[in-house]
Design a binder for these strands. Structure first.
Length: 271
DNA sequence: AGGTTGACCTGTCAGC
DNA sequence: TGCTGACAGGTCAACC
């Protein structure tokens, strides 16, 4: 589920609750993707200094180390005022804070909460080290993207999903960005021109910005930190719209599978 | 080394 | 109504 926009919406939602708060207790539910990496007790009394995002990870800076939080496919991070209690159904991590509490609700448990001494040590270094450039970074240019494309033998859509050349683009926004850029998802990345790479980078930035603005996509599980839903799913141009008419040319939207993921596109608009 | 596939886990929904 | 299978926003480890 959660791609960059959903994680960023979550970050903005939880930041005000977390900053400056002291952790009174940490709770673990069923195992998530990786173990926490420390005893929950060691988090007690530490203070939250920052809440940042790197790719699809939330990076919570503590005065003792960092917590990496990943929402996996079905995760939501819910912030509540008032004292915490026992974890409820599908809540597998929780922090009780001086003023409120935080819960990770994640039915499928593909998500993770990992502690490390710092963002550049231990498991955090390993996980964040695999994350490609941020889509909004000025260091990411059409030229660097195009150069990365040329080195690959893979189709453009799965290459975008891999997150090594640009991070944060998941299955919904990859289809959407390729549609806006007029590029077929099956096109070999090496055959994407510089002009197309330029259009694609602009499209990625536009789609992600619009999705953040819309509060992300709530297909099923995703919820904002206050429990409300995003609504970008109502504004998708192709994702989830097989057989519907393309908004540009009215040809039917098609769905194919690439690497076990569904891809949506317009065969007339995308070359 | 890079590309491809399976695995992780649970809920939901379509079809019989 | 109940069972079975397919599918869902991610991504890592194991294979060729």
């Amino acid at each position: 589920m959660p791609e960059l926009p959903e994680v960023e919406v979550t970050r903005r939602g939880v930041e005000p609750l977390l900053i400056g708060q002291r952790i009174l207790a940490a709770h673990l539910g069923k195992p998530l993707r990786w173990p926490l990496g420390t005893e929950p007790k060691t988090l007690e009394q530490s203070r939250v200094l920052s809440v940042q995002r790197r790719g699809k990870y939330l990076v919570v800076g503590l005065d003792v180390g960092v917590l990496l939080i990943h929402l996996g496919m079905s995760g939501s991070l819910l912030a509540h005022t008032g004292p915490g209690g026992e974890l409820r159904a599908h809540e597998h991590f929780g922090l009780d804070l001086t003023n409120g509490h935080l819960r990770l609700h994640d039915p499928r448990r593909f998500g993770a909460v990992v502690w490390a001494p710092s963002a550049v040590e231990g498991m955090a270094a390993k996980l964040l080290g695999g994350v490609g450039p941020e889509p909004f970074s000025p260091d990411l240019t059409p030229q660097t993207l195009h150069a990365g494309f040329k080195r690959s033998a893979v189709a453009i859509k799965p290459l975008l999903l891999a997150g090594k050349l640009v991070c944060g683009v998941g299955n919904i926004y990859a289809s959407e960005a390729l549609f806006l850029a007029g590029i077929r998802p099956q096109r070999r990345a090496a055959r994407v021109s510089l002009a197309q790479a330029t259009a694609l980078l602009a499209a990625v930035r536009l789609v992600l910005s619009q999705a953040i603005e819309a509060g992300g996509s709530s297909l099923k599980d995703f919820r904002h930190s206050d429990g409300s839903s995003g609504h970008f799913q109502t504004q998708t141009r192709v994702y989830g719209r097989e057989h519907e008419a393309c908004g540009v040319c009215a040809a039917p939207i098609r769905m194919i599978r690439q690497g076990q993921r569904s891809t949506y596109f317009c065969a007339r608009c995308q070359k």
